[in-house]
Simulated scan of single mutants.
Amino acid sequence: MSEPNIRTALPDDDEELGALDRATWSNLHAVTPRPQPPYRPFFDERHAPGEHLVAELDRRIVGYIRLVPATSLACNAHVRQIQGLAVSGEARGHGVGRALIRAAMTEARRQGARRITLRVLGHNTPARKLYEAEGFAVEGVLPEEFLLDGEYVDDVLMGRAL
Results as ranks from 00 to 15, higher is better:
V62S: 06
L148R: 05
V79T: 14
P41T: 10
R40V: 08
G122D: 07
I61L: 11
E144A: 14
K129I: 00
P4S: 05
E134G: 03
H47M: 09
M158V: 05
A137G: 13
R66I: 03
I65Y: 07
G89T: 15
K129D: 13
E56L: 15
T8C: 12
G159Y: 04
N27D: 15
Y64I: 00
E45A: 15
L85M: 11
G50S: 09
I61T: 08
N5A: 11
P4Y: 07
Y152E: 10
G93C: 03
A30V: 00
G18W: 06
P35V: 09
I6C: 04
P69M: 00
G159A: 05
M105S: 03
P49A: 01
N76R: 15
H78Y: 08
R46V: 13
H29V: 07
L53Y: 12
A99K: 08
A108M: 01
H29R: 10
V62Q: 09
P41N: 03
A108Q: 07
L10E: 14
A9R: 03
I116V: 15
P38K: 10
V96D: 07
A108S: 08
P37H: 12
F146H: 15
A19S: 11
Y39V: 01
R114V: 05
I61K: 12
G95E: 05
D154T: 09
P143E: 04
G95Q: 02
R102A: 07
E151W: 02
E15R: 12
P38N: 11
T117D: 09
V31E: 07
G93Y: 04
V138Y: 09
R66C: 12
T117F: 02
I61F: 10
H29L: 01
V62Y: 13
E144F: 05
Q36M: 12
I116M: 13
V62L: 06
F42H: 12
V96Y: 09
P37L: 08
N124S: 05
L85P: 04
R102F: 03
A133E: 10
T125A: 14
R66H: 13
R40G: 03
A103N: 07
I65H: 06
Q81M: 15
A99G: 02
E90G: 11
E134V: 02
A137R: 15
G95C: 02
Y131F: 10
H78S: 10
S88N: 06
L121W: 02
I61Q: 13
A113K: 01
